[in-house]
Design a protein around this nucleic acid. Structure first.
Lengths: 160, 160
DNA sequence: ATGATTTCGTTGACTATTCAGCAATTGATT
DNA sequence: AATCAATTGCTGAATAGTCAACGAAATCAT
């Protein structure tokens, strides 16, 4: 079967390309890092990484109004994903839903006192893990370039 | 409530830290990129990104024996996650399970002819997306440093 | 050899998410 | 003003994964 053999070779070559390898690295690094953080957060604060990302946005500028839609776009979730996530966070006493003044379709989300307290503890855990596995392994110069590159990539994805 | 006010400020500061921002960039870039690829792959090859990652490993060195365990570690999935993924891939006719010679606990996975064919088409789609959103947005010099840094990060995570 | 420990893959029950469709509301076009 | 289109959030059903517990096989320590 000569055809099959050539296909084998072509597949092997495609599977070994630097592009595939490099991209795999990105995915693997991001996945592992996220898992690390998730486990640490769950163990020490009884909160997952996704909820933590929500709290970041809610605590960042205390007076900014944040709608579910905004959160969904920001976290790359669907609107139904956010609905359910906020359901769970509300049940856990971390956030509160309030009707948006000026648009009766929209729902704003704000952190409760407990939400802020939990966030503060979680932020420390988060910082420790990020520091150790994201910042420490690369030189300061490379770190700057790394975040710059990631910014460019994110921008390209957003624009398209 | 003076206490609450100070907690507000502390939370706002933590939520605004560069560490949080930079790490958010990594997660967002990786997530968006993966989603892009997943959608493209599904549309054009009726295969998801995870299955594609499996095929990469199976096609890379045609003679290497790859067990489910190996795949699980490599893709950062649990062993049950892999069991189910391979179930679906087998149903789709992309791979085949064969008993491992020399260890009767272990199950080897190999690609079918169809699996290789699908992989070849998928690899082209994958390359196009990666090229456009991962390689193109950064300068060649930065690209080299980016992958190097990601390698360091991945290594730090693996070692620990 | 044997018994304890570990490893591999599978399964049932659960969790977090998506998708498709919906009702309410808003904005745009005449 | 009246309609048509787009947006927001919610829900039921489906998907892809986790975790905990298990049995079979392999490895290690007596």
């Amino acid at each position: 079967m000569n055809i099959a053999k050539r296909e084998n070779d072509a597949a092997a070559q495609a599977a070994d390309s630097p592009l595939v390898h490099d991209f795999g690295l990105l995915i693997k690094a991001a996945t592992r890092l996220e898992q690390r953080i998730d486990t640490a957060l769950r163990k020490e604060c009884e909160i997952g990484h996704t909820m933590f990302e929500v709290l970041i946005r809610l605590c960042r500028h205390p007076d900014e109004e944040i709608s579910q839609r905004r959160l969904a776009d920001d976290l790359t979730l669907t609107s139904s994903g956010i609905t359910r996530l906020i359901d769970r966070m509300e049940d856990a006493g971390l956030v509160r839903r309030v009707p948006a003044p000026g648009d009766r379709r929209s729902v704003l989300v704000e952190p409760t006192g407990q939400g802020r307290t939990v966030f503060l503890r979680a932020a420390a855990v988060h910082a420790a893990v990020v520091e150790r596995y994201f910042v420490a392994p690369v030189t300061p110069a490379d770190y700057g370039r790394l975040t710059r590159s990631l910014g460019e990539i994110e921008k390209a994805l957003r624009d398209a």
